[in-house]
Design a protein around this nucleic acid. Structure first.
Length: 617
DNA sequence: GCGATCAGCT
DNA sequence: CACAGCTGATCGC
């Protein structure tokens, strides 16, 4: 569940997915998708009144989200204030302060998020840099590279901040079978059942939320049928969904619901009340889509689990897994990452620390330590970014969070060198200026940490409260986290750091054993990690609590492999704005070499960074 | 009577 | 197995 407070520090005059409290003063609203936890305050009378007195404030979302939203009478009053935007079409939006007339332009691009119908990410491009608000999303590995608007030419755009759907950003959720695997498993189960007779029917026990539609359309297509649902109203303008759903109960696949549907099912009734089509009793199985996750080294897993005589759970996820998120972040390498969800049993601090490893600063930290030339490049790219975060008074008088960060930054910089003025516009000029930052890495690292920790003023309370519950069992996470941090550095030096981590893992494991789960043993049988997982599509009769077994082993293993993976990814990302030439040996460069390097870097990299942020302005 | 919040339950 | 959201109780305005 999202606990994002609604405002991005870079663009605090707009609100995203939150419509209460300070968001009531926003100059523009954005709704990423039509789930209630992203719509807080959206039907509030205060906001409704504000709209009636405003000429400028609008709600921006996708066409599909607009349709879904307006299909609910409680939100019908938004009709005249909604501006639906096409996907992948950069659109300039003027943010006007209606009192002062002050204006700021922002370019927004909607990117399909794969979470539910109409769900999008928002890419904001403006004077404060490129910011990606992911909303909720499910991306497969590699998906980010296929999104045109995350690129500028052949390069990845310079993303300042990602506001991230971190629902499964926790190594517990290392992998979740792909959509295709899940669909295939469900199709096989359903096919085997409904082919037996017309009285063999399936009840898809779906929650009351958008997001299962692609299941319906795929099943409808596969079995040349329609799925029974309670209402078609919300899909009336979406033919590609509408054609696969029906309110006619005489179909073999149902996704209808009833407050007492579980009882109904026990009594061999469908939620719609059906017990028979023509006097012949139905043979009903229930399939409950639910998230299943697996460890990094899980060799074979089932996407269907039998939970009773005629009950099944089927793997289904609205959100990206840990490894999918990592792939996404490794590709984008944003400067900052802020989680919008704290996974159950975690705290904001823990998640922020783990996310720091995926920040651009952090991956460069490794390069800085072992590849000294890298720091020049890193500083070059980062200097301006850095400064732009603290240069002017845009945040003056606004919320505490950005100001606090700014102050922290300045004080950090002061210790190294006198306060700097705003960065020069010229690329060449900015170069020597930023290179003089003698020890920038630690500062930047701290900066990332602090900003994450201190972000989200009132939001933090919620998150910390969430976290309180698990302060009783912190060792497992802490142990794990420490190990990972260590590995981060060690891995670059020594490929045998694996043994170091393996040694550390039993300790964290034993503390974890106090949890309710019964992880599998540290068996050595899985010495050979298969990166190509084969999720079984075949129905399993197993009723074991399979999905979280091996947690401890996975945690430890994750530490080792993810760093390797990260390195590979950065190597493959040769076109990135912030990639750097490899330094084969760590000798100290001579001044003339440095000068050559400066020229090379200045000729391309920085120019691209600057252009990237102005591309659509 | 309405909204916000929380516990409980899927 | 934890998606998202409903229902009902309680409290405050």
């Amino acid at each position: 569940m999202s606990s994002f407070a609604g405002r991005m520090k870079e663009y605090p005059t707009v609100s995203v997915d939150r419509f209460d409290r300070e968001n009531l003063h926003a100059r523009a609203y954005f709704l990423s998708h039509c789930h209630k936890d992203h719509m807080k305050g959206l039907k509030g009378p205060i906001l409704k009144r504000k709209l009636q007195f405003s000429r400028m404030v609008r709600l921006y979302c996708s066409f599909v989200t607009k349709e879904l939203l307006l299909s609910n009478p409680k939100y019908a009053f938004w009709e005249e204030y909604i501006v639906p935007l096409e996907l992948e079409s950069p659109t300039q939006i003027s943010l006007v302060d209606e009192a002062s007339g002050e204006k700021e332009d922002l370019v927004v691009t909607l990117l399909p998020a794969g979470h539910c119908p109409g769900s999008v990410m928002f890419l904001f491009e403006g004077s404060r840099g490129n910011v990606l608000y992911t909303g909720d999303f499910r991306f497969a590995v590699g998906d980010a590279s296929r999104i045109e608007h995350l690129h500028s030419g052949s390069r990845v755009k310079d993303i300042q901040t990602v506001y991230l759907d971190s629902t499964f950003y926790d190594p517990r959720y290392y992998q979740i079978p792909t959509r295709e695997m899940c669909l295939n498993g469900i199709s096989e189960l359903i096919g085997n059942w409904i082919s037996q007779s017309p009285y063999h029917v399936v009840w898809l026990n779906c929650k009351a939320a958008y997001g299962y539609e692609y299941l319906f359309t795929n099943l409808g297509e596969t079995f040349n049928t329609q799925i029974h649902v309670r209402s078609l109203e919300m899909f009336k303008k979406m033919p590609e969904i509408l054609s696969y759903v029906t309110t006619d109960r005489r179909t073999q696949i149902h996704a209808c619901r009833h407050p007492k549907d579980e009882e109904f099912f026990q009594g061999n009734r469908l939620p719609c009340g059906c017990t028979a089509f023509d006097g012949t009793p139905l043979r009903i199985i229930s399939i409950k889509p639910s998230t299943m996750w697996f460890g990094e080294r899980m060799r074979k897993t089932n996407v269907i689990i039998k939970t009773g005589g005629s009950s099944f759970r089927a793997c289904f996820s609205f959100h990206s897994s840990y490894s999918e998120i990592k792939d996404f972040l490794s590709y984008l390498k944003p400067v900052n990452i802020y989680p919008s969800v704290i996974p159950l049993g975690r705290t904001l601090t823990e998640v922020s620390q783990l996310l720091n490893l995926m920040c651009r600063n952090q991956s460069d930290l490794v390069m800085f330590v072992y590849k000294p030339l890298g720091v020049l490049k890193r500083t070059m790219v980062e200097g301006p970014t850095h400064d732009s975060d603290s240069d002017d008074g845009l945040f003056d008088g606004l919320d505490l969070v950005p100001v606090r960060k700014k102050m922290g930054l300045n004080s950090e910089i002061k210790t190294a060198s006198p306060p700097k003025t705003a960065p020069p516009v010229s690329v060449v000029e900015s170069f020597p200026l930023t290179v003089t930052d003698s020890q920038p890495v630690a500062h930047n690292y701290m900066d990332c940490t602090e900003s994450n920790d201190e972000e989200d003023g009132d939001d933090e309370e919620e998150k910390e409260k969430d976290g309180k519950g698990d302060t009783s069992n912190p060792p497992k996470w802490d142990d794990f986290f420490t190990a990972e941090t260590l590995t981060d550095s060690q891995n670059s030096l020594n490929s045998q750091s694996q043994s170091c981590c393996s040694a550390a893992s039993p300790a964290s494991s034993s503390s974890k054993m106090t949890g309710s789960q019964t992880p599998d043993l540290f068996s050595d049988e899985e010495e050979n990690p298969e990166t190509n997982e084969h999720f079984s599509l075949i129905l399993s009769a197993s009723t074991s609590n399979h999905s979280s077994q091996n947690q401890d082993l996975e945690l430890a293993d994750t530490l080792i492999l993810e760093q390797q993976e990260q390195e590979e990814l950065s190597e493959s990302q040769a076109s990135s704005d912030f990639d750097i030439p490899c330094t084969p040996e760590s000798k100290i460069p001579r001044p003339d070499e440095l000068s050559q390097l400066y020229k090379k870097l200045a000729s391309g990299e920085e120019v691209m960074v600057r252009k990237g942020s102005q591309g659509f302005a």
